[in-house]
Write a protein that binds this DNA or RNA. Structure first.
Length: 426
RNA sequence: GGAGAAGUGGCUGAGUGGCCGAAAGCGCUUCUUUGCUAAAGAAGUGAACCUCAAAAGGGUUCCAUGGGUUCAAAUCCCAUCUUCUCCGCCA
């Protein structure tokens, strides 16, 4: 079923595409796009024939001695031919642009292994780890811990920048750094090569990974330079190989990257997003993979396993959701969300999303590899958070709160923290 | 930020209006030959799109990007981007 993709799939199996899209939460008019494709092809053929005729006439032209009567007569004739060809080319270009733009509005199709469903209520729990029902006798919502605001200073963040840009102070700043180090080191040991990406990207990059044209409202923009603050390291890291053809034997490529992430999250502020639950700027380590067209689903499972390892070492109870067709994103074919249990808030907090985009991003980004016959084949891209710092930190604070009011530092972070507890004893 | 120079295929590098998708060399692939990984010879070797049931074949486009001049542009003009040199500034 996956043998054909992109334009060919649309042309040859429009009903299949239509049905597949109906399961996702996006709509697009397949018939209109097919009509644009038909027009586009007809116009291109017309224009190419005109140009071909012009080139043939041009050959004769080139053979004539300049300035002769024949030459001058020929110039007049050629003017008409060239004008006609140019006109047809303008039409063809327009038809092609119209189609390409419409084509970008088609979401990626869900993989058959993605459960069909309309909303988040139909996501499946693929796995759970740890005991969320265990007694956490001392747990509090992290924002209610008495010393919390002295170590994550929201008020000063508001003064200096605005809501959602806290200062992490002292040992909390070190906790962030410890988590980032832990995540990066684990990723390295799992075979991901570390990169430190640019934190701003251009329009082409944001388009390739799917942030544009849809979600520009979610990014901070510098309109003067046409640059965007990255909402995730996925954007610069995936674009690393944009417009390139890779060797098949270098796949899969696995990369990890730490970066701050900037999200405007316009309109989504309120009572449910207190404390570290949702911020405009946060730290995250991202895993990105480029694979061939055959092994991406297998690599997604490995990716998910790599992320699960982190939560297990942190000893945080979590669950893995297999997101249903109605809840996965526009560019996604398959997606797992990993949620940790925050015992103080008695809530599951999403700390990672592991996704297979199949060839969706790679097609936009023109990331390819040489197939067995030497021809370029569109690659597959995947990514997953490993992990988003603030919510992991929130869960650690809540779940590890001790009777004396301090928080126990997970043993896997000891190496970087060099202390067993943080916070102030009662 | 100011002043200059330059951007050609995987790389080096010819090409200043039509015979140039583009010489040559390198690299790569296949074949031939010599008793080893080396050398020599032969052929081949970019991408996108259109056409075609598919393959073959045919066609169009692409010489940083976008416009323009012209019957005709890698070649002329304009803008932008990038790189290099010098100056300024700065971690």
């Amino acid at each position: 079923m996956k043998a054909i993709a992109g334009k060919a799939l649309l042309r040859e199996q429009p009903d299949f595409v239509r049905a597949a899209i109906a399961h996702k939460k996006f709509t697009c008019d397949i018939d209109a796009i097919l009509a644009l494709d038909t027009t586009r092809r007809a116009k291109i053929t017309e224009a190419e024939q005109a140009r071909s005729a012009q080139k043939a006439a041009n050959q004769d032209m080139a053979a004539l001695p300049k300035g002769t009567p024949e030459f001058i007569a020929k110039v007049q004739e050629m003017k008409a031919i060239a004008g006609k060809a140019k006109e047809l080319e303008v039409v063809a270009k327009q038809a092609d642009d119209d189609f390409q733009q419409a084509f970008l509005s088609i979401p990626n199709l869900a993989d058959p292994s993605t459960p069909i469903g309309k909303s988040e209520d139909e996501n499946e729990v693929a796995a759970t780890w740890g005991d969320a029902d265990a007694a956490f006798p001392h747990a509090l919502p992290h924002f209610d811990i008495p010393w919390f605001e002295s170590r994550v200073d929201f008020a000063r963040g508001v003064k200096v920048t605005g809501a959602g840009f806290p200062f992490y102070v002292g040992e909390m700043s070190r906790m962030v750094r410890a988590l980032v180090n832990f995540f990066l080191e684990e990723a390295r040991l799992s075979g991901y090569e570390e990169v430190l990406p640019p934190l701003v990207v251009n329009e082409a990059s944001a388009t390739a990974t799917g942030q544009l044209p849809d979600k520009e409202g979610q990014m901070y923009v510098d309109p003067k330079e046409g640059l965007y603050l990255i909402p995730t390291a996925e954007v610069p890291v995936t674009n690393f190989y944009r417009d390139e053809i890779l060797d098949a034997d270098q796949l899969p490529v696995r990369r990890c990257a730490y970066s701050p992430c900037f999200r405007r999250e316009a309109g989504s502020w309120g009572a449910h997003v207190r404390g570290l639950n949702r911020l405009h700027q946060f730290d995250k380590v991202e895993l990105v993979k480029w694979t061939d067209a055959e092994s991406s689903m297998e690599e997604l499972e490995k990716l998910r396993g790599d992320v699960e390892q982190l939560l297990q070492k942190l000893e945080l109870p979590y669950r893995v959701l297999r997101m249903c067709t109605g809840d996965i994103g526009f560019p996604h074919a398959k997606q797992y969300d990993l949620e940790v249990f925050a015992a103080g808030q008695q809530r599951w907090l999403e700390v990672s999303s592991c996704s297979n985009f199949t060839d969706f991003q790679a097609r936009r980004a023109a990331i390819r590899y040489r197939g067995p016959d030497g021809k370029p084949v569109t690659a597959h891209t995947l990514n997953g958070s490993a992990l988003a710092v603030p919510r992991v930190l929130a869960a650690i604070l809540e779940n590890n709160l001790q009777a004396d009011g301090r928080v126990k530092v997970p043993s896997c972070l000891q190496h970087w923290m060099q202390q067993e507890f943080i916070g102030v004893a009662k």
